[in-house]
């Protein structure tokens, strides 16, 4: 769908306080999940009880923002009820949309809550007109969150071939593997995004300071090593340093995060309806800052300002940590 309306800024919230911060900072929509393994950011101390969800949605609606509830892991065999219940609860809380990946959840929503908007999660990895057409025909999804493997040119071609809104990630953590189709985490640790809503889970992480270096390990596998004095990063599996064919380095992806701020105008021209910021695990200070900057950047893009000016608005966000525009530029591949 080639949309010409104003682009929607979709922002993360891991806690009720962060939801309020995101709304106050100018989020058009906030996405969040329940405190269990029905959502793909199932970390201790994060997420919402049903009551908090209802209150958060009331707050957001009172300030003109929407709330999208992520129920985007895959329901457990023989125990699919918690996923259906989460969907029912989200609808009862007056969610503006449910974000789902599992056909069991999508089917439940389409059958029982046809009036609630259904968004196809990035975890469903739908990247072709045929795949998206299938989800549209079978479940009447209203929006598709695009996998982070498509270039802007491909997004434009895709949008001209489909009749549904699309949402693209612009900022935050970057999966180098196709989301929803990666078992690296469970291979090493037994827990994974699809099964448990976690990747490279904290309980499998250890830091070993011995001799001249700090070694970051995941389930005993060395993921990276740091010189004394340099900060040790979190051992996310696909961003580790490995050796293959006699070469040692970041073979899958450098320890970078996504910042496609400079591509907001291009994404709009490619027909994107909504821009998504990753980071439900982030604190409210971080979310406030990022949302505020992107609010200004998106507004500038809507006013027809060029990417140099937008880059200036977002400059503060690139301090510390390396960033990439990811697959949106074809050379990334």
């Amino acid at each position: 769908m080639t949309a010409q309306q104003r682009m929607e800024l979709v922002c993360p919230a891991g806690t009720p306080a962060t939801l309020r911060a995101a709304v106050t900072a100018g989020a058009d929509a906030v996405y969040c999940g329940f405190s269990d393994d029905t959502n793909a950011r199932n970390f201790p101390g994060l997420n919402f009880s049903p009551r908090e969800m209802a209150e958060g949605i009331r707050f957001a609606h009172g300030h003109g923002s929407k709330v999208l509830v992520a129920i985007n892991t895959f329901a457990r065999a023989g125990d699919t009820d918690p996923w259906r219940r989460a969907a029912d609860t989200a609808v009862a809380c007056d969610a503006d949309a449910v974000i789902a990946a599992d056909i069991a959840v999508l089917d439940h929503m389409a059958q029982n809550h046809p009036k609630t908007r259904l968004h196809l999660s990035v975890q469903a990895a739908a990247a072709t007109p045929e795949a998206i057409g299938f989800y549209l025909e079978a479940f009447a999804v209203r929006r598709v969150v695009l996998p982070r493997v498509l270039s802007v040119q491909e997004i434009k071609a895709l949008n001209s071939a489909i009749a549904v809104e699309t949402e693209a990630f612009v900022f935050g953590g970057l999966c180098v593997m196709m989301e929803g189709r990666c078992h690296l985490s469970s291979y090493a640790t037994g827990r994974s995004p699809n099964l448990n809503g976690v990747c490279s889970p904290p309980e499998a992480v250890s830091y070993d300071e011995s001799g001249q270096a700090t070694t970051a390990r995941l389930a005993g596998f060395t993921i990276d090593r740091y010189d004394p004095g340099s900060p040790a990063g979190y051992p996310t599996l696909c961003k580790g340093r490995f050796t293959a064919g006699g070469k040692t380095g970041y073979l899958f992806e450098d320890p970078v995060s996504l910042n496609a701020g400079t591509m907001i105008v291009a994404l709009k021209e490619a027909g994107i309806t909504a821009l998504k910021i990753e980071g439900r695990q982030r604190g409210k200070g971080y979310v406030s800052e990022v949302v505020r900057a992107f609010r200004r950047a998106v507004d500038a893009a809507e006013l027809g300002r060029d990417s140099v000016e937008i880059e200036g608005i977002l400059a503060a966000l690139s301090e510390g940590g390396r960033q990439t525009t990811g697959a949106y530029r074809k050379t990334w591949r």
């Binding site: 493997v149 196709m178 990666c182 078992h183 291979y187 293959a244 064919g245 073979l251 992806e253 591949r333």
Partner: peptide, 13 residues
């Protein structure tokens, strides 16, 4: 088979 990517790791290597 553990993962698929838009990126080719053989090419990157």
């Amino acid at each position: 088979p553990l993962a698929l990517s838009g990126r080719c790791y053989h090419a990157r290597l």
